[in-house]
Write a protein that binds this DNA or RNA. Sequence first.
DNA 1: CCGTCTATGTGCTTTGAGCGTATATTCTCA
DNA 2: TGAGAATATACGCTCAAAGCACATAGACGG
Lengths: 116, 116
Amino acid sequence: MDRFRAETFLPLTPVAFDILLALADGEQHGYRILQDVNMRSGSITALHAGTLYRALARLLEQDLIQELSERPAEDDERRRYYRLTDRGIAVARAEARRLAGQLATAEARNLLKAHA
Amino acid sequence: MDRFRAETFLPLTPVAFDILLALADGEQHGYRILQDVNMRSGSITALHAGTLYRALARLLEQDLIQELSERPAEDDERRRYYRLTDRGIAVARAEARRLAGQLATAEARNLLKAHA
DNA sequence: CCGTCTATGTGCTTTGAGCGTATATTCTCA
DNA sequence: TGAGAATATACGCTCAAAGCACATAGACGG
């Protein structure tokens, strides 16, 4: 594998970053990810099921997440569990740094404080 | 105008937010915006001219930015200047808040500190 | 057992971005 | 002063991703 650099994946789409964030908590299945994202965004931006599952397929292809073969016993058979790969963690962190930089700029340019 | 809510514009595309950030500094013309964005992102993500000008057209339609009729004297005639509208400021701030929330989540889930 | 929630997925369409190209003007400096 | 580089805006084409509707089916609660 020739010299992986997380930056080539940036910027992540808002949806992709939401999903990686959901998995930062630990392995999870699709529907839970959907709920986690929609909880956190507080109905501001509803993530649709179709969008989620297709995004998961893409993240798998890119090797940012992987599916677990082992699953909890007595669990709903339909569920498919995912976790972040090392690569996925690296990319999510890089994106977080990028966003932190943007916020720093926003702050420096007085976008965040006071007025209108 | 029926009860404007900034949240309906969220999430902004990374490109759109970059442009609004560039204009948070004050009015500016297209090519300068291009340079500002590409400086700040440090070649991680090159914003192409074609992408920029089309994005500007979109932001104008959405009334997030507006073109200035007055321009500096002795200035390059080709330049077209833009500034943020009140609406644009509100949307940019809302997006900044959204991103701050995501970063807080990233922090809470230990994505940012230490380890692999 | 009946409807709702859980769970994953596909089809269709639109939006936005990447990248190349066109066009013209202004600026630099040999 | 003339050539070439940088400035400045914009369009064409294509692809990736998202929105939204819909399909399918098992699990769960009353």
